[in-house]
């Protein structure tokens, strides 16, 4: 009876652990912590139009992760005292944000128009926050000051910490609209023929291999130190050091090894011309049975 109870407890424990692991795995796989409020437009006079042809303030959320994140089940709010003001519905394909992609919400106070339409506007307060499904964990929040009509306020680069008024409104698009200068382009400006690159790179390649050369040239002696003898207790006579000839070439070693091998395994060197007949024991196997090797004639 006791054993059965114990087994039941163990099973329940294992089940709980499994559920916790799965739940943990799910939450980390979703990585809702990677979501960021990326850009907002508070006063929309002549800017982006929603799917009803109306203009309203909007909020852009950016998925900074390299995997899809479902924003369904999370909360958006403009009220510090009510973190669960707008629950984002679950189970809708719209709420699944592709890697490094965006979702827009319209802050028009008209939630009956669809799941992207919030039950508040951005002009009511100067606060906006995104909360996790438990309604307690804040994922991202923003306090904004006075806003200009049709000028959006957002992160200068998608997902980065620095905020400011953007030159262009970029709903569901990259916030940075300037020319991207790669490090390669910078190199080309300063080094159009690649001479500096060749000089720097060859210096580094030579530097790395010279370093290896110096290390391996000088550490050869280190390997031959017998640390056991070096740190042996006082009083004990150190073992007599055998004179070893260093730098024996591989060719010499190969010659010694070959002669030893020939000595040990080349039995024909010592043939004495005596023939012997040795009985070879063969274990029985049905595969080698004589019966199967004969043709059975019909009687």
């Amino acid at each position: 009876m006791m054993a059965e109870i114990k087994r039941t407890i163990n099973l329940a424990g294992a089940f709980i652990v499994l559920v916790l692991v799965l739940a943990g795995g799910r939450s980390s796989a979703q990585s809702i912590a990677d979501l960021r409020i990326n850009e907002i437009l508070v006063i929309n006079d002549s800017n982006y139009v929603d799917d009803y042809g109306k203009r309203s303030g909007w909020i852009e959320i950016f998925n900074t992760a390299y995997n899809t994140v479902d924003i369904g089940g999370l909360y958006l709010t403009n009220d510090m005292t009510n973190p669960t003001k707008y629950p984002i519905p679950t189970g809708d394909p719209i709420t699944k944000i592709a890697p490094r992609n965006y979702i827009l919400f319209f802050a028009d106070g008209l939630p009956t128009r669809g799941i992207q339409h919030l039950n508040f506007t951005l002009t009511e307060t100067n606060y906006l926050a995104l909360f996790a499904g438990n309604g307690k964990t804040m994922i991202d929040a923003l306090k904004y000051g006075e806003q200009t009509p049709d000028v959006s306020y957002g992160r200068i680069n998608d997902g980065h910490a620095e905020w400011g008024f953007l030159d262009k409104t970029t709903p569901a698009a990259n916030n940075f609209t300037g020319e991207i200068v790669t490090s390669g382009d910078k190199f080309l400006l300063l080094d159009p023929y690649g001479v500096a690159m060749a000089f720097i790179a060859m210096s580094v390649v030579f530097g790395a291999l010279i370093l290896l050369y110096i290390v391996f040239k000088n550490t050869k002696q280190l390997y031959s130190i017998n640390f056991k003898t070096l740190f042996s207790k006082k009083g004990k006579e150190p073992a007599p050091v055998k004179a070893t000839k260093e730098d024996i070439s591989g060719e010499v070693n190969a010659a010694i090894a070959l002669s030893l091998h020939l000595y040990v395994s080349e039995l024909h060197d010592h043939e004495d011309a005596v023939l012997t007949i040795k009985k070879v024991a063969r274990t029985y196997s049905p595969w080698s049975s004589k019966i199967y090797g004969l043709r059975n004639l019909s009687k």
Binding site: L188, Y193, A198, A201, V205, F206, I210
Partner: peptide, 27 residues
């Protein structure tokens, strides 16, 4: 010391890099 020969042969990479820049390829 033979390692240094392995380093020297990498000049080919940067020779081609320079030539490619001259032919109008991006860095």
């Amino acid at each position: 010391k033979l390692m240094l020969i392995g380093a020297a042969a990498q000049f080919g990479i940067f020779g081609a890099y320079t030539a490619a820049l001259l032919l109008g390829f991006s860095p």
